[in-house]
Amino acid sequence: MTKTTDIVALDEWYAIAVMADVGGNPIRTRLLGQDIIYGRGPNDRVSVHEVDASGRPGAALPTRERYNCLWTSLGAPRHEIFRLAEAEEKDRRVVVCGWIKMRTSGLRLVENFLDMAHFPYIHPNILGAEPHTEVPQYASEIRRDVDEVWATNCQFYQPQIVANGPGGMVQLTYRVPSPFVVMLYRVCPSSPDRLDVIMMFIQPIEEDLCRALPVMYLIDDRSSQIDLLNFEQVIFLQDRIIVENQRPLLLPLEPRSETPTRADLSSVVFRRWLKEKGLRFGTAEGGRDLV
């Protein structure tokens, strides 16, 4: 496909690579239907360029290095990349989990990330377990001052809150700072006055194809790196099967025909937010226009 004409999507920032993988050899990838190329030039300067129709590097794109990743935009972002205060704390363990590609709209992935009801069924004995299937009342809202979606006061019973850890009621806060970035704050089991942060950066490749990278900022000096990676990747692959089998692959913004349950609140708010923004890329409504 070709570069989207969706201004709302074009003007966002997207993580496209882990900084450690940005080297002298230029790497080609695709963002919002547009081929781009990135790499490190002389003086260690990192650049991202569009690749034009003849296969040559074209316009230089804006870049940022944030949260261990290289970010870029195909448009003119009206704001900086979201701020994560926890990332500035020096004692944090940063775990970059590795990109995984998925045949679905990136927005489906965000919606799946926000959904707690699936934990006991899709991540049995990790993030949930029967019979603890109830999603207690939580709040979800569009925060107008920052233009983000937040879900607060979320609780759920988890048999393994951290890798190989004990189970219990976990306290979660969800945040969607931009349409293709989603994260959760989790009350840290080992120091309850602090929050672990688990983010998911999504690179929308095409309307129905994306790659996603979980990045975690944890308070954890106990778990091994490999245990943390495995924990997150196993969960991620379990979700991948689900989102790749949802139909349509593109996210419908119109309310679902069936009455949403209490557990769907975040999804309803997220879809409403996208609709208000006028985002079309990766949505069932926008997808139809493009065909």
Partner: peptide, 8 residues
Amino acid sequence: VAVDVHPG
């Protein structure tokens, strides 16, 4: 023994 194949 868990080996870090991806991304390591």
